[in-house]
């Protein structure tokens, strides 16, 4: 299709969809109104299980299997990226070229912020059930902080501290234990991902039953998974020597 034809088709479709959306939006309850039936069930349910952060309760307790699926998606995408970005036959890994000079102050600031970021990340993971945050958020912060090593320092510094196998294992461990904990609930009460740990008292660090445990597992999985993911992109961009474009039908 010519690009003009494509655009015309799109505009036709988009106009239709816009009309559809507009009619739907006008039929929805007014923005900011009080009508939230699911919330009215979810908040007491969270309180019953002594989980102060209701979002965490919904994520890990009430609708835990959603999060199980979500963590499996993370696992799948990390495996998928690893498979897609595996070195092709004509490529070989080479030593990364030495980095150019960096601003001293940037490096210093980076190294100062590194431990701060890691501590904040751990805190966000650990308090995910009592304050805003959780395993995913904290995990991403941890992984980002880790990459300060490259951004402020050098790729070699990052590469030395990053045996991918270990992170692979950490990721698999997090995702796997999530499933194991779910199966434990199944064995104990007959329901998958049942909250089988005593829930403790509201607002404390040890409250919410399985919620903080799952938070930690997700934190482990996401931080390791994000590191692995970025590692593959780094390898692609920095250390792989380019084998050249494969001509059609050529090679093998």
């Amino acid at each position: 299709m010519s690009s003009r034809g494509r655009l015309a088709l799109f505009l036709l479709g988009a106009a239709g969809v816009a009309v559809l959306f507009a009619t739907a939006f006008l039929g929805m309850p007014a923005f900011g109104s009080e009508d939230h039936p699911y919330r009215d069930l979810a908040v007491p349910a969270a309180v019953r299980h002594a989980t102060a952060n209701v979002v965490s309760s919904v994520n890990f307790d009430q609708r835990g299997i959603d999060t199980f699926g979500e963590e499996t998606i993370v696992l799948g995408s990390v495996i998928g990226v690893a498979a897609l970005l595996r070195p092709a036959q004509r490529e070989s890994e080479q030593r990364p070229p030495p980095d150019r000079h960096r601003l001293e102050s940037t490096t210093l600031l980076g190294y100062v912020l590194l431990p701060v970021t890691l501590v904040v990340g751990l805190d966000v993971v650990a308090h995910g059930h009592v304050s805003p945050g959780g395993g995913f958020q904290g995990g991403v912060i941890l992984a980002t902080g880790f990459h300060l090593l490259y951004l402020a320092g050098s790729y070699q510094a990052l590469a030395r501290l990053r045996p991918v196998e270990i992170f692979d294992r950490g990721e698999a461990l997090g995702a796997g234990l999530f499933g194991v904990l779910g199966a434990a609930g199944l064995a104990a009460t007959g329901a998958f991902l049942a909250n089988v740990i005593p829930t403790g008292s509201f607002g404390q660090l040890f409250s919410g039953g399985t919620v903080p445990v799952l938070n930690v597992l997700v934190g482990l999985e996401v931080s390791c998974g994000a590191v692995v993911l970025l590692t593959h992109f780094f390898t692609e961009a920095i250390t792989l020597s380019v084998g050249g474009r494969r001509e059609r039908g050529g090679g093998t």
């Binding site: 805003p132 959780g134 958020q137 980002t144 970025l230 992109f233 692609e236």
Partner: peptide, 22 residues
């Protein structure tokens, strides 16, 4: 705030980093 933290983690550094590396 939970969602904001998530979006921040993904949107501020990780996704731009992947895009830039690609």
């Amino acid at each position: 705030p939970d969602v904001a933290l998530s979006q921040l983690g993904v949107g501020a550094a990780v996704v731009p980093l992947m895009v830039m590396l690609a």
